[in-house]
């Protein structure tokens, strides 16, 4: 049970008919996705989250939600996949992928805190707000 979970995480363990405000936290299986590999196709992630590399509205949201350290204590493994033409850079200039990945495996905001992550970059064509 994660007692300090935000409502957006609590709803994953919300029973039918239960009031969100009455939930004590986010209840999840002790395995937490251990042994499962999640490929996140987004703008990559910034594992160390240096603010200086972030330059968009998404990044500001991401910084606020991840408190600059979301991936430092992640339990699963982290791998990067690159297209043959891509430079092997471990960063996320946009911040969107950093934020969404934290919602998968981040110790504070992740739904499957022990899953393994593979980071894959795709090119966005439209902006979306979280």
């Amino acid at each position: 049970m994660q007692q300090d979970a935000r409502d957006e995480l609590k709803i994953f363990s919300q029973a039918r008919g239960a009031r969100l405000s009455a939930l004590p936290g986010y209840a999840y299986d002790a395995r937490g996705g251990q042994g499962i590999t999640v490929y996140v196709m987004d703008t990559r992630i910034n594992p160390d989250h240096p603010v200086s590399t972030l330059n968009s509205q998404f990044a500001l949201v991401s910084v606020r939600l991840t408190h600059l350290q979301e991936f430092r204590n992640m339990q699963g493994s982290l791998r990067w996949l690159y297209l043959p033409t891509e430079p092997h850079i471990k960063s996320d200039a946009v911040g969107h992928g950093t934020c969404t990945t934290s919602k998968v495996v981040g110790p504070a905001f992740g739904v499957a805190k022990s899953a393994n992550i593979v980071v894959v970059k795709i090119q966005p064509v439209v902006k979306c707000l979280i």
């Binding site: 042994g35 499962i36 590999t37 999640v38 490929y39 996140v40 196709m41 987004d42 703008t43 996949l81 690159y82 297209l83 969107h96 992928g97 969404t100 998968v104 899953a115 593979v118 894959v120 970059k121 795709i122 090119q123 966005p124 064509v125 439209v126 979306c128």
Partner: peptide, 30 residues
């Protein structure tokens, strides 16, 4: 996008993770 799918599919196949892999596309893409 197709190229990205290709490397993901190849990685899953190479590690025989077909029953243990989840692919999330969390960004609108071409």
């Amino acid at each position: 996008m197709i190229d990205a799918w290709g490397i993901v599919a190849a990685d899953i196949a190479s590690k025989d993770m077909r029953a243990k892999a989840v692919v999330l596309i969390t960004l609108s893409s071409e």
